[in-house]
Design a protein around this nucleic acid. Structure first.
Lengths: 130, 130
DNA sequence: CTTGACAGTGGACTATACTCCACCCTGTAT
DNA sequence: ATACAGGGTGGAGTATAGTCCACTGTCAAG
């Protein structure tokens, strides 16, 4: 598919896709050009872009994403490396979830302390050592 | 305390603290200066910085953090506004948690599909529509 | 055969969040 | 007295992640 289609299917802008291309997140080999010099994007590229989008939402940087994708979708890594990478990512995700649970508990506590007439004094105790 | 202490206690750099000051994330009133013009930071400032650090880890921008802190620690907002803000934040946190759960499920699926001898073909199905 | 949508390239610009630097003042230790 | 750690200010520079713009080429429709 051409870039216009990719824009529609990926939900990313033309400029963003080209930026990712420049950064090496997606790669086209020389075959993937039409005679008129237009770029031909495969479904693999779409998969990669979906991965990028998801991982970005979770706060990974493009460099981290680049590494992750290389391991997940690369062709040269044996299984153990893939599994290790996946396990590391799971740990990271679990860590983020724990953080969020803590924050949520804290917010809920504020909500409960605040019975119709709260002030800074109701909230501060919940924030110390937060 | 002076900035050196604050650096040690907060784990943030001098420049970062001053940047947050410039951005209005932390505020010193005129009283909070010693006669020699040195800034005197209170424990409240430390609480604020801890909040900033935590919220940053979760992917909030400094602007979002600024708003949140203003509502949580500000002095002029009535209770209803605080509660609304807290509820909004809880929603946001829950949304992020859902995202993470989805990612984790996906990663676990990859892990299961990969029985000792996986290749790109084992992983790709888990990545499509990811 | 021109118009308009779509493609490509290169480079400038922006926002966010720092980080570094130069230069100056303060205060204690030698 | 002076060295030196620590404080203050202003402004420049950096990294990341885009976003915008100008200019050019391609191609199907009228």
């Amino acid at each position: 598919m051409l870039i216009g289609d990719l824009v529609k299917k990926s939900g990313l802008s033309k400029d963003t896709i080209r930026y990712y291309e420049k950064m090496g997140l997606i790669k086209l080999n020389k075959k993937e050009r039409r005679e008129n010099n237009y770029k031909e994007y495969s479904d693999d590229i779409l998969v990669r872009l979906s991965l990028v989008k998801r991982l970005k939402l979770l706060g990974f940087t493009l460099n981290e994403i680049s590494d992750t994708i290389e391991i997940l979708l690369g062709e040269t890594n044996p299984c153990t490396e893939i599994l290790e990478a996946v396990n590391t990512k799971i740990d990271l995700v679990e860590q983020k979830m724990k953080e969020l649970e803590e924050i949520k508990a804290r917010l809920t506590a504020i909500q409960k302390n605040c019975n119709g007439n709260c002030s800074i004094d109701d909230i501060l105790p919940s924030c110390i050592n937060f």
